[in-house]
Write a protein that binds this DNA or RNA. Sequence first.
DNA 1: TTATTATGTGTTATCGATAACAAAATGGAT
DNA 2: ATCCATTTTGTTATCGATAACACATAATAA
Lengths: 330, 330
Amino acid sequence: MVTLEDVAKLANVSTMTVSKVLRGTGAISKQTRTRVFEAADKLGYVPNRLAGSLSARKSMLVAVLIPSIADTVYAEIISSLHSLLDQASLSIFIAESLMDPEVEERQIQELLSLRPAFLVRSGGIASTQRTKMLLQRFGVPHIQIWDGDDPQGQATVGPSHIEAGKIAASHFLELGLRKVAYIGAETHKDICASRRMESFIGDMTAAGAETRVLTEPDLPRQAESGELLTHRLLEDGLQVDGIFYLNDAMAIGGLRFLLKAGLRVPEDVRVMGFNGTSREQTINTRLTTISTNGHALGQTVAKTILENIGGQLPTSRTLCPVTLDLGNTT
Amino acid sequence: MVTLEDVAKLANVSTMTVSKVLRGTGAISKQTRTRVFEAADKLGYVPNRLAGSLSARKSMLVAVLIPSIADTVYAEIISSLHSLLDQASLSIFIAESLMDPEVEERQIQELLSLRPAFLVRSGGIASTQRTKMLLQRFGVPHIQIWDGDDPQGQATVGPSHIEAGKIAASHFLELGLRKVAYIGAETHKDICASRRMESFIGDMTAAGAETRVLTEPDLPRQAESGELLTHRLLEDGLQVDGIFYLNDAMAIGGLRFLLKAGLRVPEDVRVMGFNGTSREQTINTRLTTISTNGHALGQTVAKTILENIGGQLPTSRTLCPVTLDLGNTT
DNA sequence: TTATTATGTGTTATCGATAACAAAATGGAT
DNA sequence: ATCCATTTTGTTATCGATAACACATAATAA
């Protein structure tokens, strides 16, 4: 393995000089610079950032902890985050918390063991006491994303799920709906979803509408679950004129079932999703949904990181806009 | 920051003893073990893996380079990879190549600077000469995924895109189609897509069918592009009875356009996608598609890594199955 | 010419762990 | 009590860089 020293020997300078040249710090004459570059190039030298970070007591790593990489929302955020951080030579490493506080704790420990410069962590789950202590003790600049309503991190970037619920409610109310349902899954773990549900149900109830909540723990948040729960809702003989789903996938499953059951959407029942991830995928139906812009969120996070790298990350809160995307299901 | 030494002092032993206890190596008496654990616990010690890896000359890092994190296929692979590697305390860090050989080269360099134990890299693009040299020189165990037809890595895991194209062709031929088109995008960069296209067109032509290829560089591989290119195809006045799309998103866009244009699917035109990512998302239409199992792929990769960690990664090739998912568009 | 700055370049200590080997403690067996 | 084999613990060197400062060398001023 080629080291700084090998390059130094070939270029006939000290390792320190090579280090300076390669990082562009310090004052090195043009000739030695080219000599060093040539040597490094000839040897195919790739710096060892493990050693570098250890020595400099600062790393170029950004740790990201999200519930699931396979979830489009987070994937989009990370992708956008990556593309900006990349320009600053910051590497991203990721872990999944699966919405489980215990897992989150373990993962954060793993992540911290790499001594990242920043920790980007999805909020929305009830972190354990130990997790909070760890974060505090380590003093890593810590950005919480997704749960914009809860300013836990030093910086918080995310949509307000309370607002999302309000938007759904006000839209349903404008349409004059009087009997509505919320259909979700795993509500006990997902604080963000709970916020949407509560503010939605709260507003609807306050306006005198009849409400119903259907959730079931340990149900994957997929189309089939939407179908299942919608099926259950209808079985109960309940007549609803609007359903707000946990996410788009479940809304689509629900739609599937409603149409199969002979109901007309939006004439008989109106349907609203959350997340806007399905806009791309549907053919005739454009789901009415409340969407957040993952790309923008990622950008904001990246900007926050780049602006504060090396310094103190100030406490701040950025609320990302949530917008109502009118489709043809309401 | 708490170090090994702090723990050692508190437990009244040497750092080496602490190191051994925490890693479970060497023979340490039960009492010192508990003493060390208690001390570590009290101090909230989290090992510094930068230092550890540097010292042990081996890291617990797995580098992953894929075209795009936001792409469902890859996200699924990484997610499944993560969940297995996690059990072995292997951390994943990722980078996007954007299907650009230059970017790939830069990213690989960044990734190698962390001295990963394994490099998982998506094939399907034409790597630069320097990239190949780097990989060889570094001798990192290197697993190529996605392009199962091209055994470039020490281990290759992926579907055969040639087979995928053949499956599409044979299905179309069984249905008696005589005039078919392939609609794609960015074909010059994406070798995998090219393989599908070529084997599809090859087989169709060999069977005497009339074929047409419509691709355009620098077009995002999204629904809109599918709409656009399908529009263009129809404009040309060409009558086709089957279209094979680059991926599901584009197929869905295509479908959207075909239906808008008053064509019946599958009666007038048959449509086939690739990837099976949309099964979840559609409501009435189940797109006929050729799908690969990203989860299984990730598992295979993880297994390969876990089995060969610390040792030599033997050259191997695992072809992942591609299956025809019959929907109602053919 | 000598003193005084800049401008380059090199020295030494250090970061936080682990490997490899060395030393001490323990426990029978004689 | 002595010795050898185990079991347990500690020492020293090292991994590959960087920080901080020290030392040359060249450029400018007095």
